[in-house]
Design a protein around this nucleic acid. Structure first.
Lengths: 154, 154
DNA sequence: ATAGACTTGTTGAGCTTTCAATCATCGGCG
DNA sequence: CGCCGATGATTGAAAGCTCAACAAGTCTAT
């Protein structure tokens, strides 16, 4: 027996759906326009830049970016073409591959970051009160606890 | 001069990004598995089902689903192949096309809706207190006011 | 040691989305 | 009327994602 949404829930759901999609589309488009890469690729570069030695196992990188292994393989192949990432064999597991951020990749990321962060501020934080930002964090964490329990955010 | 995010904002942003993507992926995947269609197609059917005569101009439908005209054209082409939607010439504007939900399309939608609504409830509303749901709505509306001002939600 | 199960990462095909180009029609203005 | 910029919709190619299949390496238990 389906538990339908009442009027109020319906409106909340649609508002959330549209807001998050509109924000996503906007940021993704800005990044594509200004930095020539989709947000998915940006995220890969960010995670690599924060990792020790700026390198990560493919599977860890996939997990960190909420991406399937397949998707990551394709993405890294392309980032490698651009010269932003390079692959190395993993010394401790012969199945493994390490994705390594190149100096050029780091450069590109550093330039892209300015505009993107400005976008996040303009389109998200500037629109919310500090209380709302705190609420949004709690709400998001509640969702994450359910959807992806036991995951480290950092 | 870039206004960077502080630690707190950074965490909020990542939590929101991951939560909304995880929710989206989950619902999209469930819909694909249970109803054989991506969420984008589901949304098209929903909007048509709510319209008078179950029909809408292509451009209105595109706007209602936050989709580009091009994307909608491709999507409707496919929905037409499935027999869920059919196109008609617009009687008042010879450039125009009307997308019309077929009876079969309505049937398919009705069946898909059960599982999808259950998913929205399980993965979203069941995880939030009523206060948080109200907050989420206000936050979403604030974002929408900025990203897409003057848009009717319904 | 080794068979069987699991993990890692890649590949190719098919599908959806994007982007730019195109065509037809509409509406206003001289 | 007839021109012309704006609007409605489609198209094809390129890019990205998904899914299932696969090859290669590791782990466990006997």
């Amino acid at each position: 027996m389906t538990r339908w949404l009442d009027e109020e829930e319906q409106r909340t759901w649609r508002a959330f759906l549209h807001a998050s999609r509109a924000l996503w589309d906007r940021l993704d488009r800005e990044l594509q326009r200004d930095a020539g890469m989709p947000h998915a690729y940006y995220e890969i570069l960010v995670r690599l830049s924060e990792a020790p030695q700026r390198m990560l196992r493919m599977s860890d990188l996939a997990e960190a970016t909420l991406s399937s292994r397949s998707r990551l393989s394709h993405a890294v192949a392309r980032l490698e073409e651009y010269g932003w990432v390079r692959r190395e064999d993993c010394p401790t597991d012969r199945r493994g591959q390490l994705a390594v951020l190149t100096d050029q990749g780091f450069q590109v990321l550093a330039e892209a970051a300015h505009g993107h962060v400005e976008g996040v501020r303009t389109h998200l934080f500037d629109q919310l009160t500090p209380e709302q930002a705190a609420q949004l964090r709690q709400i998001s964490e509640a969702m994450l606890d359910h959807l992806d329990p036991g995951r480290a955010l950092y």
